[in-house]
Design a protein around this nucleic acid. Sequence first.
DNA 1: AAGCACGTTTAG
DNA 2: CTAAACGTGCTT
Length: 449
Amino acid sequence: MSGMTSGVCVESDLSSMLQRSSAPSHHHPNHHGYGGQGQVSWCFLMSSPALVSGLAPMLDYTTEMDRYRSSIATFYKTNVNMNMNVTNFPQSAKLAARLAAAAPIFPPTAARLGAMATAPWGCHDNMNMNMNHPAAMFWGRPKPVATAPTHHHHHPSATPGHMTSSHPHSSSMHQSSGGPGGGGTGGGSEGGGAEKHGHTASLPVSQGTAHHHPIAPSNGNFLPGYSGGADCGVMNKQGHAHPDMMGLSEGGNCNGGGVMSGGFLGGLGLPPGVIVMAMGSAGGGISDASSAFQMTSGQRALTDCQQHTNSSPCPSSSSPSSSGVTAGGVSLSSSSSSSSGTVAKRKRKRCGVCGPCRRLINCGVCSSCRNRKTGHQICKFRKCEELKKKPGGGSGVLEVSNAHIDGRPPSQPVRRFAGSSSLSFTSGVTNTDTPGLNEIQPEDFGVSD
DNA sequence: AAGCACGTTTAG
DNA sequence: CTAAACGTGCTT
């Protein structure tokens, strides 16, 4: 979805932009509609003063701010419409619902987050890639990128060119999705076909598009570090549609792959007000960012990570017990009270922070997935690292997580909406082979002043 | 030891 | 009630 890079939409008004859908094209002949969603979404973001300045230096800040507001509103609205994700990904839908219900400040944000959360894969490219993956098939038909009726029509040449180069298998999908109404069924890569494609589909577009966008010179993606896939050396995984790629970005350690990595914010030069609202940053961006990220990646106790005030990485699978979520086999939801004597018998729950836990979708090919009905087991690739261990093997340190420190049940998601969440789905870089190194690092969010 | 099947628990 | 998933015993 390098199209996202088209971000430099001088158009502040999304709707108008969509109608004319020409703005981006002028600036980026190569950029094209990948999935409208990302494009549209980012478009407004990219139209930050800093960026626009180069195109329209005459605009003053106030005007820009107004445009931002307008764009955001439209953006949210648009994303809500893009709920296709919710439909296709039940779990994400749930999350979306939760978010919506929890959104304290800016409800639409929840919807937006939810929608975004539904994209368990990295941004754009990964989205496409995963469409072809069995996993996608498992949970539903590939998403038809409904929202952006846009670029395709206006950049006929661009689309094919780009897609064929980077997403040979995705092309059909996109084309269908580009149809009017977003193709309710956009089933391009559904079923077995998707499975077949899994191994060759899409590599992150980083290469081909990098140069297209002046703002994202590194890779043509929004997240300067997105191409971090390469930086992290996990590119091959994605390229091969390895089951791991289905996990959310765990490449937190990889600045490139991180959600909002590098100078994302800085690069965008978003107005402070916008950052606070859209990027959610009420608190110190770091924790918020990570929390949001986790919210999108897991549904349960994924928030412990960012709650570690020491800002240390989320407990990896290697030492998840520190999260206090599953230590000693004590149910996290049952609270520490059960820790007294009769521990153990309760079912343990997923730690929510390990690589497998972060995965949102089933591989659809493992024995567990194949035997879902009879096996009663979670996808092997999603099996919590902690649960794989013997129940009693825990360190015995119970409930140490900050979740308790702040009084929130471990399993209770942090009700904060960090921009990172919206960005989280762009962090397609995964590196689940080293879960312990994939925890989100504050610096990964590039939250800086 | 790994995988599988089934009972059981948990959450929506 | 149903689906998801953990626990555990059996099989390979």
